[in-house]
């Protein structure tokens, strides 16, 4: 049985973006836009960032600049791995039923 995730799609996209390297808000938006062609609004972006930070999945890196980079934490990495495994189960089941594999 596939468990329902606690976080929404924007949160997962942010975690995937940060899995590559630490990025600040606007860089996360650009990464999501270039990879998935999704325009994440600033309100949605910072709503998701605040939830993820509260959950301990990302943390802000100290910076002199006004643009503060975010880093994926160990807990965030574990959570993202679990979510990707769930998504893979869904994709495999869907592909099997469509006769693609």
């Amino acid at each position: 049985m596939v468990k329902k995730g606690k976080f929404s799609e924007p949160s997962l996209l942010i975690l995937i973006s940060l899995a590559e390297k630490s990025r600040h808000g606007y860089a996360i938006m650009e990464d999501i836009q270039s990879n998935y062609d999704i325009n994440l609004g600033p309100g949605t972006l910072y709503g998701a960032i605040s939830r993820l930070e509260k959950a301990g999945y990302i943390r802000v890196l100290e910076s002199e600049d006004r643009k503060k980079p975010y880093k994926l934490t160990k807990e965030g990495s574990v959570y993202l791995t679990q979510q990707i495994e769930e998504l893979q189960k869904i994709a495999t089941l869907g592909s099997k039923r469509l006769g693609l594999i």
Binding site: H24, G25, Y26, P42, Y46, I49, S50, R66, K67
Partner: peptide, 8 residues
């Protein structure tokens, strides 16, 4: 988050 959001 105010300053960061303003920047974005």
């Amino acid at each position: 988050y105010g300053k960061e959001l303003e920047q974005v």
